[in-house]
Design a protein around this nucleic acid. Structure first.
Length: 452
RNA sequence: GUGGUUGUAGCUCAGUUGGUUAGAGCACCAGAUUGUGAUUCUGGGGGUCGUGGGUUCGAGCCCCAUCAUCCACCCCA
Protein backbone atom coordinates (compact mmCIF):
# COMPACT_ATOMS: atom_id res chain seq x y z
CA UNK A 1 0.00 0.00 0.00
CA UNK A 2 1.31 3.43 -0.91
CA UNK A 3 1.52 6.25 1.58
CA UNK A 4 -1.79 8.02 2.10
CA UNK A 5 -2.04 11.49 0.65
CA UNK A 6 -4.44 14.33 0.07
CA UNK A 7 -5.88 15.53 -3.22
CA UNK A 8 -4.02 18.50 -4.62
CA UNK A 9 -4.92 21.83 -3.10
CA UNK A 10 -6.84 20.41 -0.15
CA UNK A 11 -5.84 20.48 3.51
CA UNK A 12 -6.42 18.81 6.84
CA UNK A 13 -6.99 21.29 9.62
CA UNK A 14 -5.29 20.46 12.92
CA UNK A 15 -7.00 21.25 16.22
CA UNK A 16 -5.01 24.43 16.50
CA UNK A 17 -5.93 25.46 12.97
CA UNK A 18 -9.61 24.71 13.46
CA UNK A 19 -9.64 26.88 16.57
CA UNK A 20 -8.04 29.74 14.68
CA UNK A 21 -10.43 29.33 11.78
CA UNK A 22 -13.40 29.23 14.11
CA UNK A 23 -12.22 32.47 15.67
CA UNK A 24 -12.43 34.12 12.24
CA UNK A 25 -15.64 32.41 11.22
CA UNK A 26 -17.51 33.20 14.42
CA UNK A 27 -16.38 36.82 14.28
CA UNK A 28 -17.78 37.14 10.77
CA UNK A 29 -20.93 35.26 11.64
CA UNK A 30 -21.64 37.41 14.68
CA UNK A 31 -21.29 40.57 12.64
CA UNK A 32 -23.59 39.21 9.92
CA UNK A 33 -26.20 38.33 12.54
CA UNK A 34 -25.79 41.70 14.17
CA UNK A 35 -26.73 43.36 10.87
CA UNK A 36 -29.88 41.26 10.53
CA UNK A 37 -28.65 38.69 8.02
CA UNK A 38 -30.07 35.18 8.18
CA UNK A 39 -28.20 31.93 7.60
CA UNK A 40 -28.58 29.77 4.52
CA UNK A 41 -26.84 26.59 3.41
CA UNK A 42 -26.98 24.92 0.02
CA UNK A 43 -25.66 21.50 -1.09
CA UNK A 44 -22.03 20.85 -1.95
CA UNK A 45 -23.14 19.82 -5.43
CA UNK A 46 -25.41 21.51 -7.92
CA UNK A 47 -26.72 20.45 -11.28
CA UNK A 48 -23.95 21.20 -13.74
CA UNK A 49 -26.41 23.20 -15.79
CA UNK A 50 -26.97 25.55 -12.86
CA UNK A 51 -23.30 26.50 -12.82
CA UNK A 52 -22.15 26.36 -16.43
CA UNK A 53 -21.89 29.63 -18.28
CA UNK A 54 -22.19 31.76 -15.15
CA UNK A 55 -18.51 32.45 -14.53
CA UNK A 56 -17.21 33.03 -18.03
CA UNK A 57 -15.18 30.67 -20.14
CA UNK A 58 -12.31 30.55 -17.67
CA UNK A 59 -14.71 29.81 -14.83
CA UNK A 60 -16.37 26.94 -16.64
CA UNK A 61 -12.99 25.29 -17.03
CA UNK A 62 -12.42 25.44 -13.28
CA UNK A 63 -15.66 23.79 -12.22
CA UNK A 64 -15.16 20.37 -10.63
CA UNK A 65 -17.48 17.99 -12.44
CA UNK A 66 -18.80 14.79 -10.90
CA UNK A 67 -18.76 11.64 -12.97
CA UNK A 68 -22.15 9.95 -13.27
CA UNK A 69 -22.65 6.62 -11.59
CA UNK A 70 -23.44 3.46 -13.48
CA UNK A 71 -21.48 4.30 -16.60
CA UNK A 72 -20.18 0.73 -16.75
CA UNK A 73 -23.68 -0.69 -16.84
CA UNK A 74 -23.94 -2.42 -20.25
CA UNK A 75 -27.18 -0.65 -21.09
CA UNK A 76 -25.48 2.74 -20.64
CA UNK A 77 -22.40 1.84 -22.61
CA UNK A 78 -23.43 3.32 -25.95
CA UNK A 79 -24.52 6.56 -24.32
CA UNK A 80 -21.37 6.80 -22.26
CA UNK A 81 -19.15 6.36 -25.30
CA UNK A 82 -21.09 8.97 -27.20
CA UNK A 83 -20.79 11.32 -24.26
CA UNK A 84 -17.06 10.77 -24.11
CA UNK A 85 -16.73 11.66 -27.79
CA UNK A 86 -18.59 14.91 -27.10
CA UNK A 87 -16.30 15.63 -24.17
CA UNK A 88 -13.20 15.13 -26.32
CA UNK A 89 -14.61 17.77 -28.64
CA UNK A 90 -14.81 20.20 -25.77
CA UNK A 91 -18.54 19.89 -25.17
CA UNK A 92 -20.24 18.88 -21.97
CA UNK A 93 -22.30 15.77 -21.90
CA UNK A 94 -24.99 14.98 -19.38
CA UNK A 95 -24.44 11.36 -20.30
CA UNK A 96 -21.12 11.54 -18.41
CA UNK A 97 -21.61 14.29 -15.88
CA UNK A 98 -24.66 16.15 -14.76
CA UNK A 99 -23.58 17.36 -11.32
CA UNK A 100 -20.72 19.56 -10.14
CA UNK A 101 -19.22 20.88 -6.92
CA UNK A 102 -20.27 24.44 -6.27
CA UNK A 103 -17.80 27.06 -7.45
CA UNK A 104 -19.01 29.93 -5.31
CA UNK A 105 -21.94 30.77 -3.05
CA UNK A 106 -23.54 33.48 -5.14
CA UNK A 107 -24.90 31.44 -8.04
CA UNK A 108 -26.37 28.72 -5.80
CA UNK A 109 -27.92 31.54 -3.78
CA UNK A 110 -29.44 33.05 -6.93
CA UNK A 111 -30.80 29.60 -7.76
CA UNK A 112 -32.29 29.36 -4.28
CA UNK A 113 -33.92 32.76 -4.55
CA UNK A 114 -35.29 31.94 -7.99
CA UNK A 115 -36.79 28.73 -6.63
CA UNK A 116 -38.20 30.26 -3.44
CA UNK A 117 -38.98 33.89 -4.21
CA UNK A 118 -42.66 33.30 -3.47
CA UNK A 119 -41.94 32.46 0.16
CA UNK A 120 -39.17 34.92 0.92
CA UNK A 121 -39.64 38.24 2.65
CA UNK A 122 -37.91 40.97 0.64
CA UNK A 123 -35.49 42.48 0.98
CA UNK A 124 -33.99 39.11 1.79
CA UNK A 125 -30.72 39.37 3.68
CA UNK A 126 -28.85 36.10 3.91
CA UNK A 127 -25.40 35.00 4.91
CA UNK A 128 -23.75 31.75 3.96
CA UNK A 129 -20.51 30.19 5.21
CA UNK A 130 -19.54 27.09 3.28
CA UNK A 131 -16.70 25.48 1.34
CA UNK A 132 -16.46 25.88 -2.43
CA UNK A 133 -14.24 24.08 -4.94
CA UNK A 134 -12.21 25.23 -7.90
CA UNK A 135 -10.00 23.15 -10.18
CA UNK A 136 -7.42 25.91 -10.17
CA UNK A 137 -3.76 25.17 -9.77
CA UNK A 138 -2.89 25.80 -6.13
CA UNK A 139 -0.32 28.39 -5.06
CA UNK A 140 0.18 30.88 -2.29
CA UNK A 141 -3.16 31.79 -0.73
CA UNK A 142 -4.95 29.66 -3.25
CA UNK A 143 -6.57 26.30 -2.69
CA UNK A 144 -8.85 23.91 -4.50
CA UNK A 145 -11.17 23.70 -1.55
CA UNK A 146 -11.73 26.87 0.42
CA UNK A 147 -14.37 28.55 2.53
CA UNK A 148 -16.36 31.54 1.48
CA UNK A 149 -18.41 33.77 3.74
CA UNK A 150 -21.01 35.69 1.79
CA UNK A 151 -23.62 38.23 2.79
CA UNK A 152 -26.13 39.38 0.18
CA UNK A 153 -29.23 41.53 0.12
CA UNK A 154 -31.68 40.86 -2.67
CA UNK A 155 -34.87 42.65 -3.56
CA UNK A 156 -33.64 46.15 -2.84
CA UNK A 157 -31.93 48.81 -4.90
CA UNK A 158 -31.41 51.10 -1.90
CA UNK A 159 -27.87 52.37 -1.54
CA UNK A 160 -28.11 51.93 2.20
CA UNK A 161 -27.33 48.28 1.52
CA UNK A 162 -23.94 49.21 0.09
CA UNK A 163 -23.33 51.32 3.16
CA UNK A 164 -24.31 48.46 5.45
CA UNK A 165 -22.04 46.04 3.67
CA UNK A 166 -19.15 48.49 3.91
CA UNK A 167 -19.77 48.78 7.62
CA UNK A 168 -19.77 44.99 7.90
CA UNK A 169 -16.32 44.86 6.34
CA UNK A 170 -15.18 47.50 8.80
CA UNK A 171 -16.73 45.79 11.83
CA UNK A 172 -15.21 42.41 10.99
CA UNK A 173 -11.72 43.70 10.27
CA UNK A 174 -11.65 45.86 13.38
CA UNK A 175 -12.76 42.91 15.52
CA UNK A 176 -9.98 40.85 13.98
CA UNK A 177 -7.57 43.72 14.81
CA UNK A 178 -6.83 44.18 11.13
CA UNK A 179 -7.21 47.93 11.44
CA UNK A 180 -5.07 48.79 8.45
CA UNK A 181 -7.26 47.02 5.93
CA UNK A 182 -8.50 49.04 3.00
CA UNK A 183 -11.79 48.74 1.22
CA UNK A 184 -11.45 49.67 -2.41
CA UNK A 185 -14.61 50.60 -4.22
CA UNK A 186 -15.49 51.53 -7.74
CA UNK A 187 -18.60 51.59 -9.89
CA UNK A 188 -19.19 49.59 -13.02
CA UNK A 189 -21.00 52.54 -14.55
CA UNK A 190 -17.86 54.66 -14.23
CA UNK A 191 -15.88 52.01 -16.05
CA UNK A 192 -18.58 51.76 -18.69
CA UNK A 193 -18.53 55.53 -19.06
CA UNK A 194 -14.79 55.45 -19.69
CA UNK A 195 -15.28 52.90 -22.45
CA UNK A 196 -18.13 54.92 -23.92
CA UNK A 197 -16.14 58.14 -23.77
CA UNK A 198 -13.28 56.77 -25.82
CA UNK A 199 -15.74 55.27 -28.26
CA UNK A 200 -14.88 51.70 -27.42
CA UNK A 201 -17.86 50.54 -25.42
CA UNK A 202 -17.40 47.10 -26.86
CA UNK A 203 -13.82 46.93 -25.61
CA UNK A 204 -14.86 47.48 -21.99
CA UNK A 205 -13.53 44.07 -21.03
CA UNK A 206 -10.15 44.68 -22.64
CA UNK A 207 -9.80 48.01 -20.91
CA UNK A 208 -10.77 46.81 -17.48
CA UNK A 209 -8.64 43.66 -17.59
CA UNK A 210 -5.63 45.80 -18.45
CA UNK A 211 -6.11 48.68 -16.02
CA UNK A 212 -6.97 46.35 -13.18
CA UNK A 213 -3.30 45.36 -13.16
CA UNK A 214 -2.00 48.89 -12.72
CA UNK A 215 -0.64 48.58 -9.19
CA UNK A 216 0.87 45.23 -10.02
CA UNK A 217 2.68 45.81 -13.32
CA UNK A 218 2.90 49.60 -13.61
CA UNK A 219 1.66 52.14 -16.12
CA UNK A 220 4.09 51.27 -18.93
CA UNK A 221 3.08 47.67 -19.09
CA UNK A 222 -0.59 48.57 -18.84
CA UNK A 223 -0.19 50.85 -21.83
CA UNK A 224 1.63 48.11 -23.69
CA UNK A 225 -1.18 45.69 -22.97
CA UNK A 226 -3.80 48.24 -24.05
CA UNK A 227 -1.88 48.68 -27.25
CA UNK A 228 -1.76 44.95 -27.81
CA UNK A 229 -5.48 44.79 -27.23
CA UNK A 230 -5.91 47.11 -30.16
CA UNK A 231 -6.49 50.52 -28.61
CA UNK A 232 -5.27 53.65 -30.38
CA UNK A 233 -2.78 56.18 -29.02
CA UNK A 234 -5.51 58.78 -28.39
CA UNK A 235 -7.62 56.21 -26.58
CA UNK A 236 -4.68 55.14 -24.43
CA UNK A 237 -3.90 58.76 -23.75
CA UNK A 238 -7.38 59.33 -22.40
CA UNK A 239 -7.17 56.19 -20.29
CA UNK A 240 -3.95 57.52 -18.81
CA UNK A 241 -5.72 60.71 -17.81
CA UNK A 242 -8.31 58.50 -16.16
CA UNK A 243 -5.67 56.49 -14.34
CA UNK A 244 -3.95 59.64 -13.15
CA UNK A 245 -6.94 60.72 -11.10
CA UNK A 246 -5.61 60.95 -7.54
CA UNK A 247 -6.04 62.59 -4.16
CA UNK A 248 -8.45 61.78 -1.38
CA UNK A 249 -11.84 60.31 -2.15
CA UNK A 250 -13.58 63.65 -2.61
CA UNK A 251 -10.81 64.96 -4.87
CA UNK A 252 -10.90 61.82 -6.97
CA UNK A 253 -14.66 62.10 -7.38
CA UNK A 254 -14.38 65.74 -8.43
CA UNK A 255 -11.62 65.02 -10.93
CA UNK A 256 -13.37 62.05 -12.48
CA UNK A 257 -16.56 64.11 -12.72
CA UNK A 258 -14.68 66.63 -14.79
CA UNK A 259 -12.98 64.04 -16.95
CA UNK A 260 -16.15 62.09 -17.70
CA UNK A 261 -18.48 65.06 -17.91
CA UNK A 262 -21.70 64.95 -19.93
CA UNK A 263 -22.05 61.23 -19.50
CA UNK A 264 -25.11 60.00 -17.67
CA UNK A 265 -23.52 56.66 -16.73
CA UNK A 266 -20.60 58.39 -15.08
CA UNK A 267 -22.91 60.85 -13.34
CA UNK A 268 -24.97 58.00 -11.87
CA UNK A 269 -21.96 56.06 -10.71
CA UNK A 270 -20.24 59.07 -9.18
CA UNK A 271 -23.39 60.09 -7.34
CA UNK A 272 -23.68 56.65 -5.81
CA UNK A 273 -20.03 56.43 -4.83
CA UNK A 274 -20.25 59.86 -3.24
CA UNK A 275 -23.25 58.80 -1.18
CA UNK A 276 -21.53 55.64 0.03
CA UNK A 277 -18.28 57.37 0.94
CA UNK A 278 -20.08 60.11 2.81
CA UNK A 279 -22.50 57.83 4.64
CA UNK A 280 -20.07 55.06 5.58
CA UNK A 281 -17.68 57.62 6.98
CA UNK A 282 -16.00 55.35 9.53
CA UNK A 283 -14.97 52.77 6.94
CA UNK A 284 -11.47 52.89 5.39
CA UNK A 285 -12.89 53.35 1.93
CA UNK A 286 -10.47 54.04 -0.85
CA UNK A 287 -12.05 54.89 -4.16
CA UNK A 288 -10.03 53.17 -6.85
CA UNK A 289 -11.14 53.74 -10.43
CA UNK A 290 -8.82 50.99 -11.63
CA UNK A 291 -10.68 48.33 -9.66
CA UNK A 292 -12.50 46.10 -12.13
CA UNK A 293 -13.16 42.61 -10.71
CA UNK A 294 -14.78 39.80 -12.64
CA UNK A 295 -17.12 41.29 -15.15
CA UNK A 296 -19.63 38.51 -15.06
CA UNK A 297 -22.61 39.84 -13.22
CA UNK A 298 -21.70 43.05 -11.43
CA UNK A 299 -23.53 46.14 -12.66
CA UNK A 300 -23.12 48.78 -9.96
CA UNK A 301 -20.79 49.35 -7.03
CA UNK A 302 -17.91 46.91 -6.74
CA UNK A 303 -15.87 46.19 -3.63
CA UNK A 304 -12.53 44.68 -2.92
CA UNK A 305 -11.04 44.34 0.55
CA UNK A 306 -7.26 44.43 0.80
CA UNK A 307 -5.06 43.21 3.59
CA UNK A 308 -2.69 45.68 5.25
CA UNK A 309 0.02 46.59 2.79
CA UNK A 310 2.84 44.89 4.74
CA UNK A 311 1.36 41.49 3.90
CA UNK A 312 1.93 40.28 0.37
CA UNK A 313 -1.49 38.78 -0.03
CA UNK A 314 -3.92 40.38 -2.39
CA UNK A 315 -7.61 40.47 -1.93
CA UNK A 316 -9.23 39.17 1.24
CA UNK A 317 -12.78 39.87 0.17
CA UNK A 318 -14.87 41.26 -2.62
CA UNK A 319 -18.34 41.89 -3.89
CA UNK A 320 -20.66 44.20 -5.68
CA UNK A 321 -24.10 45.01 -6.98
CA UNK A 322 -25.84 42.95 -9.60
CA UNK A 323 -29.09 44.04 -11.22
CA UNK A 324 -30.72 40.86 -12.12
CA UNK A 325 -28.85 37.75 -11.11
CA UNK A 326 -31.92 35.55 -10.75
CA UNK A 327 -32.83 36.33 -14.35
CA UNK A 328 -30.30 33.58 -15.15
CA UNK A 329 -32.90 31.26 -13.64
CA UNK A 330 -35.95 32.87 -15.18
CA UNK A 331 -37.01 35.17 -12.35
CA UNK A 332 -36.79 38.87 -13.10
CA UNK A 333 -36.66 42.08 -11.11
CA UNK A 334 -34.72 40.90 -8.09
CA UNK A 335 -31.72 43.21 -7.82
CA UNK A 336 -29.09 42.54 -5.21
CA UNK A 337 -25.77 43.41 -3.71
CA UNK A 338 -23.37 41.20 -1.82
CA UNK A 339 -19.93 40.80 -0.33
CA UNK A 340 -17.65 37.92 0.47
CA UNK A 341 -14.83 37.26 2.92
CA UNK A 342 -11.89 35.03 1.96
CA UNK A 343 -11.39 33.16 5.21
CA UNK A 344 -8.34 31.21 4.10
CA UNK A 345 -6.49 34.35 3.15
CA UNK A 346 -7.60 36.22 6.24
CA UNK A 347 -6.17 33.28 8.19
CA UNK A 348 -2.81 33.63 6.47
CA UNK A 349 -2.80 37.37 7.11
CA UNK A 350 -3.62 37.04 10.83
CA UNK A 351 -1.03 34.30 11.15
CA UNK A 352 1.65 36.36 9.48
CA UNK A 353 0.89 39.42 11.60
CA UNK A 354 0.55 37.33 14.76
CA UNK A 355 -2.93 38.62 15.47
CA UNK A 356 -4.59 35.47 16.78
CA UNK A 357 -5.43 35.84 20.49
CA UNK A 358 -3.57 33.39 22.74
CA UNK A 359 -6.60 32.23 24.67
CA UNK A 360 -8.37 30.67 21.70
CA UNK A 361 -6.14 27.60 22.08
CA UNK A 362 -7.37 26.78 25.57
CA UNK A 363 -9.98 24.11 25.99
CA UNK A 364 -9.29 22.12 29.15
CA UNK A 365 -8.99 24.34 32.23
CA UNK A 366 -7.71 21.77 34.70
CA UNK A 367 -5.84 18.49 34.58
CA UNK A 368 -6.49 16.10 37.48
CA UNK A 369 -3.31 14.18 38.16
CA UNK A 370 -3.49 10.43 38.32
CA UNK A 371 -1.77 9.41 41.56
CA UNK A 372 -2.82 5.76 41.70
CA UNK A 373 -5.82 3.45 41.46
CA UNK A 374 -7.73 4.59 44.54
CA UNK A 375 -6.64 8.18 44.17
CA UNK A 376 -7.77 8.37 40.56
CA UNK A 377 -11.21 6.95 41.39
CA UNK A 378 -11.58 9.63 44.02
CA UNK A 379 -10.27 12.30 41.66
CA UNK A 380 -12.64 11.19 38.96
CA UNK A 381 -15.65 11.76 41.20
CA UNK A 382 -14.35 15.21 42.17
CA UNK A 383 -13.73 16.01 38.53
CA UNK A 384 -17.25 15.05 37.52
CA UNK A 385 -18.67 17.50 40.03
CA UNK A 386 -16.45 20.22 38.55
CA UNK A 387 -17.57 19.33 35.03
CA UNK A 388 -21.17 19.73 36.15
CA UNK A 389 -20.40 23.37 36.73
CA UNK A 390 -19.46 23.58 33.06
CA UNK A 391 -15.72 23.75 33.63
CA UNK A 392 -13.83 21.64 31.07
CA UNK A 393 -11.34 19.31 32.72
CA UNK A 394 -9.79 15.89 32.36
CA UNK A 395 -8.11 13.19 34.39
CA UNK A 396 -4.73 11.90 33.23
CA UNK A 397 -5.46 8.54 31.68
CA UNK A 398 -3.04 6.41 33.70
CA UNK A 399 -0.73 6.53 36.66
CA UNK A 400 2.52 8.05 35.50
CA UNK A 401 5.40 10.11 36.70
CA UNK A 402 4.35 13.64 37.56
CA UNK A 403 6.87 14.93 35.11
CA UNK A 404 4.95 13.27 32.33
CA UNK A 405 1.61 14.57 33.53
CA UNK A 406 2.98 18.10 33.72
CA UNK A 407 4.27 17.86 30.20
CA UNK A 408 0.91 16.68 28.95
CA UNK A 409 -0.74 19.70 30.60
CA UNK A 410 1.85 21.99 29.05
CA UNK A 411 1.25 20.71 25.57
CA UNK A 412 -2.48 21.10 25.85
CA UNK A 413 -2.22 24.61 27.27
CA UNK A 414 -4.05 23.53 30.41
CA UNK A 415 -4.18 26.26 33.03
CA UNK A 416 -4.34 24.33 36.32
CA UNK A 417 -3.16 21.06 37.80
CA UNK A 418 -5.29 19.46 40.51
CA UNK A 419 -3.37 16.94 42.61
CA UNK A 420 -5.20 14.59 44.95
CA UNK A 421 -2.98 11.98 46.58
CA UNK A 422 -3.68 9.75 49.58
CA UNK A 423 -2.99 12.52 52.07
CA UNK A 424 -5.34 14.92 50.35
CA UNK A 425 -8.03 12.24 50.11
CA UNK A 426 -8.05 11.77 53.87
CA UNK A 427 -8.53 15.47 54.52
CA UNK A 428 -10.93 16.26 51.63
CA UNK A 429 -8.54 18.76 50.14
CA UNK A 430 -6.51 19.06 46.98
CA UNK A 431 -3.44 20.83 45.70
CA UNK A 432 -4.32 23.44 43.09
CA UNK A 433 -1.39 24.55 41.03
CA UNK A 434 -1.40 27.39 38.51
CA UNK A 435 0.76 26.06 35.73
CA UNK A 436 1.78 29.38 34.24
CA UNK A 437 2.90 31.03 37.50
CA UNK A 438 3.95 27.86 39.32
CA UNK A 439 2.09 28.94 42.45
CA UNK A 440 0.23 26.28 44.39
CA UNK A 441 -2.03 26.09 47.39
CA UNK A 442 -3.95 23.52 49.37
CA UNK A 443 -7.68 24.11 49.23
CA UNK A 444 -10.82 22.26 50.28
CA UNK A 445 -12.66 20.28 47.63
CA UNK A 446 -15.81 22.37 48.05
CA UNK A 447 -13.88 25.48 47.13
CA UNK A 448 -12.30 23.94 44.05
CA UNK A 449 -14.92 24.82 41.41
CA UNK A 450 -14.90 28.45 42.47
CA UNK A 451 -11.16 28.76 41.98
CA UNK A 452 -11.00 27.25 38.50
C1' G B 1 -3.96 25.38 -19.16
C1' U B 2 1.73 27.51 -19.49
C1' G B 3 6.70 27.96 -17.18
C1' G B 4 9.92 26.99 -13.17
C1' U B 5 11.39 25.07 -7.87
C1' U B 6 11.95 21.30 -4.41
C1' G B 7 11.23 15.91 -2.67
C1' U B 8 16.62 12.23 2.48
C1' A B 9 13.91 10.18 10.15
C1' G B 10 7.74 12.86 13.16
C1' C B 11 9.99 18.30 12.05
C1' U B 12 14.27 21.44 10.03
C1' C B 13 18.10 20.09 7.09
C1' A B 14 23.59 17.99 5.94
C1' G B 15 25.37 14.23 2.67
C1' U B 16 32.38 15.72 -1.20
C1' U B 17 33.94 14.29 -9.24
C1' G B 18 29.09 8.22 -8.20
C1' G B 19 32.55 4.30 -3.68
C1' U B 20 31.97 0.43 3.18
C1' U B 21 26.54 -0.45 7.32
C1' A B 22 23.02 7.24 4.97
C1' G B 23 24.12 11.53 9.34
C1' A B 24 23.06 16.02 12.76
C1' G B 25 19.81 19.16 15.63
C1' C B 26 14.97 19.26 17.54
C1' A B 27 11.00 15.95 18.95
C1' C B 28 9.77 11.05 21.02
C1' C B 29 10.68 6.70 24.59
C1' A B 30 13.46 4.70 28.93
C1' G B 31 16.80 5.54 33.04
C1' A B 32 19.73 8.71 36.63
C1' U B 33 15.02 10.86 40.06
C1' U B 34 8.70 6.08 43.87
C1' G B 35 4.76 13.61 45.18
C1' U B 36 6.23 18.96 41.51
C1' G B 37 7.38 20.99 35.17
C1' A B 38 13.91 23.30 34.43
C1' U B 39 18.92 21.95 33.33
C1' U B 40 22.37 18.11 32.65
C1' C B 41 23.97 13.17 31.66
C1' U B 42 23.31 7.98 29.81
C1' G B 43 20.80 4.67 26.69
C1' G B 44 16.92 3.59 22.87
C1' G B 45 13.43 3.38 18.78
C1' G B 46 12.89 5.09 14.31
C1' G B 47 14.62 5.69 6.65
C1' U B 48 12.38 0.99 0.31
C1' C B 49 16.70 8.55 0.20
C1' G B 50 8.69 10.42 -3.25
C1' U B 51 7.60 6.26 -6.92
C1' G B 52 8.91 3.31 -11.38
C1' G B 53 12.44 2.38 -15.00
C1' G B 54 17.54 3.14 -17.07
C1' U B 55 23.16 3.88 -17.14
C1' U B 56 27.18 1.62 -14.02
C1' C B 57 31.30 -3.33 -11.07
C1' G B 58 28.72 0.16 -7.77
C1' A B 59 23.34 5.33 -7.56
C1' G B 60 20.76 9.45 -2.13
C1' C B 61 24.01 11.77 -6.14
C1' C B 62 23.78 10.84 -13.37
C1' C B 63 19.50 10.02 -17.34
C1' C B 64 14.09 9.25 -18.49
C1' A B 65 9.21 8.95 -16.85
C1' U B 66 5.67 9.68 -13.10
C1' C B 67 3.52 11.58 -8.60
C1' A B 68 3.61 15.23 -4.98
C1' U B 69 5.15 20.21 -3.44
C1' C B 70 5.92 25.28 -3.58
C1' C B 71 6.31 29.69 -6.75
C1' A B 72 5.02 32.74 -11.02
C1' C B 73 1.59 33.51 -15.29
C1' C B 74 -3.74 33.12 -16.58
C1' C B 75 -7.65 33.83 -13.48
C1' C B 76 -9.20 34.56 -8.68
C1' A B 77 -10.72 34.43 -2.52
Amino acid sequence: MSKPSLPQGTRDFSSETVRKRNYILSTIKNVFECYGFEPLETPAMENLETLMGKYGEEGDRLIFKILNNGLNDPKNEAKAKEGFEKLLNGKNSTALTERALKYDLTIPFARYVAMNHGQLTFPYKRYQIQPVWRADRPQKGRYREFTQCDADVVGSTALINEVELSNIYHAVFVKLRLNNYSLKINHRKVLAALAEKIGGADSLTDITVAIDKLDKIGIDKVNLELNQRGLSVTQIDFINQYLNVNGNNEEKLNKIELLLSNNHLAADGIKELRFIVQTASKVNIDIDFTLARGLNYYTGTIFEAKAPAEVQIGSIGGGGRYDNLTALFGVNNIPGVGISFGVDRIYDVLDELNLFPQDIQISTRALFFNMGTEESKFSYAVMQSVREKGIPCELYHEQAKMDKQFKYADKKNILFAVIIGSMEMENNVCILKNLSTGEQQQISLTELPNLL
